[in-house]
Simulated scan of single mutants.
Amino acid sequence: MKARAFSYFRAETIEQALDAHARAGDDARFIAGGQSLVPALSLRLQAPRLLIDITHIAELRGVERQGDFLRIGALTRHCEMLSEPLIGQFAPLLRAAAPFVAHPAIRNRGTIGGSVALADPASEFPAITLALAAEIEIAGPAGRRRVRADDFFVDLFETALGPGELITAIHVPVFRSNQRFAFDEMARRRGDYALVGCGLLASCEGDRIDDIRIAFFSVGNVPTRVKTVEATLAGATLDPARVAAAQMALEADLAPPESDEVPPAMRLHLARVLLGRLLGRLGEGA
């Protein structure tokens, strides 16, 4: 199939992009890397009359530290997660996840803003924003606002983005010296969507976990924090009994849907195995 005929507008500023969208209404879509939108256009899963190209908006680019946060422009490409020194220093969990995102050709074009806006429940970066307690910077007809990642993901491919709004940046609390992180996923082949994946960030005092955030993906309609597991681990040391208790607590947090690919019980089992691996790394000082 081929995409339906559409008009094209290249915006130079956020204001131009928002104005173009307001004039076109529901028949417009923003496009940057296009790694999800272009296939959807080709299959006519989406058929807008106007594409608004935001790739030339300078304000959406760049990575910089702003006080206690690292501001990552929405147009930051997946491959830049691997090469940008500030991300390696202040948001290393993002760097750890980046090599698992699809394949190099996609990483060279795909953007973090596009990934978070799409909110694919099998994607790495939406879940990592949860684990990092990130804030999503949004511009729209009513002005600008920031939304916590915990409040951003609503349902399957549904987010807190309103009509005509776009993500301008991701704000990540800077990594601290007392924190540890770990990431991994299980997939049939490298580059495939994960059967289950997880990223975690913990604040530690010696061997004791003071605070921890754990986010899973490919286990439901949205990236999911496992708060019962987090409560099981907070204030504890990672001995085998505590790890086993955390693995058992996953059943209270995860309810994988029925799938032709992997039965829910198997996906939950894989999540337990993966959590055990990551907590083992955490205990080793990951």
Score class of each variant (00 low, 15 high):
Arg208Tyr: 05
Arg213His: 12
Asp210Gly: 06
Glu165Arg: 09
Leu201Asn: 02
Asp192Phe: 04
Ser203Thr: 15
Glu185Pro: 00
Met186Lys: 07
Arg176Leu: 14
Pro173Ser: 03
Thr168His: 03
Phe175Trp: 13
Ser177Val: 13
His171Lys: 11
Val219Ser: 03
Arg190Ile: 10
Ala182Trp: 09
Phe175Met: 07
Leu195Thr: 11
Arg213Phe: 07
Gly197Asn: 08
Gly162Asn: 02
Asp210Ala: 14
Gln179Ser: 00
Ala169Trp: 08
Phe217Lys: 02
Leu200Gly: 11
Asn178Glu: 14
Glu205Val: 15
Leu195Gln: 08
Tyr193Gly: 02
Cys204Arg: 05
Asp207Arg: 14
Ile209Gly: 04
Phe153Leu: 02
Glu158Gln: 15
Cys204Asn: 06
Asp207Trp: 07
Pro163Gly: 04
Phe216Asn: 10
Val174Ala: 13
Gly162His: 01
Asp211Phe: 13
His171Ser: 12
His171Leu: 15
Gly199Glu: 08
Asp210Arg: 10
Asp210His: 05
Val196Ser: 08
Ser203Gln: 15
Met186Thr: 05
Arg190Gly: 07
Ala194Arg: 01
Ala160Lys: 02
Gly206His: 06
Ser218Arg: 04
Asp211Ala: 15
His171Thr: 08
Val174Asp: 06
Cys198Trp: 01
Gly191His: 04
Gly164Tyr: 01
Glu165Cys: 05
Asp192Cys: 11
Val154Leu: 14
Arg189Leu: 03
Arg213Val: 13
Phe181Ile: 15
Val219Pro: 02
Leu156His: 15
Asp184Trp: 06
Ala182Val: 01
Tyr193Ile: 12
Asp184Asn: 14
Val196Gly: 05
Ile170Tyr: 03
Ile212Gly: 00
Gly199Val: 05
Ile167Met: 15
Ile212Phe: 03
Gly162Leu: 03
Asp210Lys: 09
Pro163Arg: 03
Phe175His: 13
Ser203Tyr: 12
Phe153Pro: 10
Arg189Phe: 02
Val174Gln: 03
Leu200Pro: 07
Ala160Pro: 09
Met186Gly: 00
